[in-house]
């Protein structure tokens, strides 16, 4: 592609000038906001900025205080629980739905429309609907009780031990449709002959899925995993809408911690340190993936 420009180079800077001018917004965004903003935040996380950012370095003090704060520990635990379960369930449910959808069924479009519509809704709407359904006074709990099972208890949003599962239910409702779509695209990309061969060899269907199809879909799984994982670290709106972090701090998540410290507690240094930890979490997910994906491609 680079061959559009002539090999003789009169002046490096003015070659392809229009393209460079047109790319200025992209360059600014990439360098100033994404790169510059990230570096700025990381640098200021080593200062003791309170109401306003100040460059007075205190080393790792903010991080020490961060990991001494119970609220941060709770939010990290919530994120870990929510993240693991969300990954497992959305991959499993998404794949199962996709496998069912791939049985040459009728009404495929109808089913797809139904499974995917929550994805078009915002997390705020999702959170508020599920807050209402899980409301112990009127929702599922009271309905089951009115059917005769009077000791039935299901109030995840008011019980700090299980509140994160209440959020998980809502998140799965919102997000599994997307996973299903990605998986279905992956299943459709698999050669029909594979199925024929497995059929001829008399391999049962579930074995074909488990030992042939799923290993073949590795790239789809990896991409889906990265998408889900980077969404998990960001989770914020859903918690705000569904529980506002409550009861107490029981359903707090890192993104909410960051926001509260930056804009309410007037403790910028803590906010920066916490957001740097979020960045680190994402890096742990992204770097190996990028290395496998792009490092491998260049060599191969």
């Amino acid at each position: 592609m680079a061959a559009h420009t002539q090999p003789g180079r009169p002046n490096q800077l003015f070659r392809n000038l229009n393209s460079k001018i047109a790319s200025i917004p992209m360059m600014l965004t990439a360098v100033v906001i994404f790169l510059g903003g990230t570096i700025w935040t990381v640098v200021y996380s080593f200062t003791n900025s309170k109401l306003l950012p100040r460059l007075s370095f205190v080393g790792l003090e903010q991080y020490e205080r961060l990991w001494d704060t119970p609220r941060w520990i709770v939010s990290i635990q919530n994120l870990a629980t929510y993240g693991c379960l969300s990954l497992i369930f959305s991959l499993t449910i998404g794949f199962l739905l996709a496998a069912l959808m791939d049985q040459k069924i009728r009404f495929e479009n109808t089913f797809r429309t139904i499974f995917l519509y929550p994805f078009a809704l915002s997390f705020i709407v999702t959170g508020l609907v599920w807050q209402w359904i899980l409301n112990p006074e009127f929702g599922v709990q009271s309905v089951v009780r009115s059917l005769g099972w009077t000791s039935f208890t299901f109030d995840p949003l008011y019980n700090s031990d299980i509140v994160i599962y209440g959020i998980l239910i809502a998140a799965l409702w919102q997000g599994t449709g997307l996973v299903m779509c990605l998986m279905l695209a992956g299943l459709r990309g698999i050669d029909e002959d594979i199925w024929k061969a497995a059929r001829v060899d008399g391999i049962p269907m579930w074995k074909t899925y488990l030992f042939i199809i799923i290993p073949m879909m590795r790239p789809v799984f990896v991409t889906t995993l990265v998408i889900i994982a980077s969404g998990i670290v960001r989770i914020y709106d859903l918690v705000v809408a569904q529980t506002s972090g409550g009861p107490g701090i029981a359903s707090d998540v890192p993104a909410k911690y960051v926001y509260d410290y930056m804009f309410f507690a007037q403790n910028l240094g803590q906010g920066f340190a916490a957001s740097t930890m979020m960045l680190l979490a994402v890096a742990i997910i992204i770097v190996p993936w990028a290395y496998l994906e792009f490092g491998g491609r260049k060599r191969g």
């Binding site: 994404f34 990265v226 979020m278 994402v282 990028a290």
Partner: peptide, 21 residues
């Protein structure tokens, strides 16, 4: 290079960049 930064940047949590913005 700019494009790669842009794509990698899509994965950075917004909270990291909000205050500079």
């Amino acid at each position: 290079i700019f494009f790669t930064i842009l794509i990698v940047g899509a994965f950075i949590p917004y909270q990291v960049m909000i205050y500079p913005i």
